Amino acid sequence: MAKHIIPHNYQVSKNDRLEANNHNSFLIWFTGLSGSGKSTIANLVEKALFDLNISTYSLDGDNIRKGINNDLSFAPEDRTENIRRIAEVSNLMIDAGLVVLAAFVSPYKKDRENIRTIVKDVNFVEVYINTSIEECERRDVKGLYKKARAGEIKNMTGISAPYEAPEHPDIEIKTENEPIEDSVKRIVDFITPKLQLKNE
């Protein structure tokens, strides 16, 4: 099938979009256990960027699992496909000139490495939201851990399925030791140089 796909040369390029937006585009990937604070922090980082006139879009389980990936379960092979599709969607958004914020458990190292391959290393910022399983269970905002402990949820990361923590993330946030405002500032400070266009 791939040999019959012929790319079309569009008149508006990625560079044109970057120049129009006056900033670079890339993917900020938030990984961590359920309840670690990924979506909360990603949301605050997006708001901070939006206030700086940065064109952004956030991806998380709510807008992915209910739509494009509603045919996937939480079995290991489906988790891998879930992340692959998200990476491909992110890649299109990067081409569109957006800073993409993606908050997903993404428990497997190989899947996160595949994201890096799809969007290219230069476009990938890995943020590890490092929150202990005990704290995540204490928060249990969605009641998932309680259901997992009761056997109602299978393949729950941290309970009945593994989480392979990043060994060398670009940024590590320990939510139990750092105020959320400081975490958000650290992330924004880290990515600010990446936003600058090379010709500036």
Score class of each variant (00 low, 15 high):
residue 52 L to E: 08
residue 49 L to Y: 06
residue 37 G to H: 11
residue 50 F to S: 02
residue 41 I to W: 07
residue 36 S to V: 10
residue 54 I to L: 08
residue 48 A to C: 03
residue 37 G to W: 14
residue 48 A to G: 11
residue 60 D to T: 10
residue 58 S to C: 14
residue 42 A to D: 00
residue 36 S to R: 03
residue 33 L to F: 12
residue 56 T to N: 13
residue 36 S to K: 00
residue 45 V to Y: 03
residue 55 S to P: 04
residue 58 S to T: 15
residue 49 L to M: 05
residue 36 S to F: 07
residue 33 L to W: 14
residue 46 E to K: 11
residue 57 Y to F: 14
residue 49 L to A: 10
residue 56 T to G: 02
residue 37 G to E: 06
residue 42 A to M: 05
residue 59 L to D: 07
residue 50 F to M: 01
residue 48 A to R: 13
residue 33 L to N: 05
residue 37 G to I: 10
residue 34 S to H: 08
residue 42 A to R: 03
residue 53 N to S: 13
residue 34 S to W: 13
residue 58 S to Q: 13
residue 35 G to Y: 13
residue 60 D to G: 09
residue 53 N to L: 03
residue 37 G to S: 10
residue 36 S to Y: 05
residue 33 L to M: 07
residue 42 A to L: 00
residue 39 S to G: 15
residue 60 D to L: 04
residue 34 S to K: 11
residue 51 D to I: 03
residue 35 G to A: 12
residue 53 N to K: 13
residue 46 E to H: 00
residue 41 I to T: 15
residue 39 S to T: 15
residue 33 L to R: 06
residue 54 I to G: 10
residue 39 S to A: 01
residue 57 Y to H: 07
residue 36 S to M: 06
residue 36 S to I: 01
residue 56 T to I: 12
residue 61 G to Y: 05
residue 53 N to T: 04
residue 57 Y to T: 10
residue 37 G to R: 08
residue 40 T to W: 07
residue 37 G to K: 05
residue 49 L to T: 02
residue 36 S to P: 01
residue 38 K to M: 03
residue 41 I to N: 08
residue 47 K to F: 14
residue 48 A to W: 09
residue 44 L to D: 13
residue 41 I to L: 14
residue 55 S to D: 05
residue 54 I to V: 15
residue 57 Y to E: 02
residue 40 T to I: 11
residue 42 A to E: 01
residue 45 V to L: 11
residue 44 L to P: 02
residue 39 S to W: 06
residue 48 A to Y: 10
residue 41 I to A: 09
residue 50 F to Y: 09
residue 43 N to K: 14
residue 47 K to E: 15
residue 49 L to D: 09
residue 52 L to F: 01
residue 45 V to E: 09
residue 39 S to I: 03
residue 62 D to R: 00
